[in-house]
């Protein structure tokens, strides 16, 4: 389909993927859509801790963008690469409207929540919070889908890669020989420059594929 062709085609672990302008990863052969670091419920967590009362719209905003990708690609499987929720209580307090939306999005698809460092409750029954899908620590295979890059080849999130170019930060995919790291998809997320140490350790050489209307890549 046409929409599936939008984005930046890349080859990783001998397989063909597409880096989408939204920051999602599309695996056409298996019809898998992967997104990293949704951090749903972040504004709730700040408020709970007595911090600033952030505009409470980031769940709706993140789900809007996720829904647009799902509408465009009709994936068989959707993978949240960890930190889907900003913390454990956020899963409980996400609200009925968001739960219903997630339900509708997950309808007829295999929906997998990989555990992250923010939401390390793979054992917590999703159904107890009326959330769709199943949770896993990681999805082993070639490549492995996990939250934090380990022994490659793997596809991960956690680091929120960004690259600074032409005077601003761009969310980006970080692509090395053994690791493919997705940008954070959540609305209220920041970024770590790909020049930072964690990236250098994982990929001495690599590419930063920048999320923009017309995607482009720079060497790391």
């Amino acid at each position: 389909m046409d929409e599936g062709a939008a984005g930046y085609p890349l080859r990783f672990a001998g397989l063909d993927f597409v880096a989408r302008p939204s920051g999602a990863l599309w695996w056409p052969a298996r019809r898998v859509l992967a997104v990293a670091d949704l951090h749903l419920g972040r504004s709730q967590r700040y408020a709970r801790r007595g911090g600033a009362l952030l505009p409470p719209y980031e769940v709706a905003d993140t789900l809007d963008r996720l829904a647009a990708e799902i509408d465009a690609l009709d994936p068989a499987r959707v993978i949240s690469l960890g930190d889907g929720f900003d913390d454990g209580p956020a899963m409980r307090e996400i609200g009925n409207e968001a739960r219903d939306r997630l339900d509708r999005l997950a309808q007829g698809r295999d929906w997998i929540w990989i555990a992250g460092n923010h939401d390390p409750e793979p054992a917590a029954p999703l159904s107890a919070h009326s959330l769709p899908g199943r949770s896993m620590a990681e999805i082993p295979g070639t490549p492995t889908f996990r939250h934090i890059a380990a022994s490659g080849p793997d596809i991960s999130g956690h680091l929120h890669p960004v690259v600074r170019l032409a005077g601003r930060n761009w969310r980006c995919f970080a692509l090395g020989a053994g690791h493919l790291i997705l940008p954070a998809f959540g609305t209220y997320t920041g970024g770590l420059a790909v020049t930072a140490r964690p990236f250098r350790a994982l990929m001495p050489q690599g590419l930063a594929i920048c999320c923009a209307g017309r995607m482009f890549a720079v060497p790391i």
Binding site: R168, A212, R214, F216, V218, P219
Partner: peptide, 28 residues
């Protein structure tokens, strides 16, 4: 600085130059 298409085009151009100078033009 403006957030319009100009910067995206500029960033793209810079990126191409960086890729070419790093000999990475064909990696993808």
């Amino acid at each position: 600085r403006l957030g319009g298409s100009g910067h995206e085009r500029l960033a793209e151009r810079l990126a191409k130059e960086l890729m070419a100078s790093a000999g990475l033009g064909d990696l993808t």
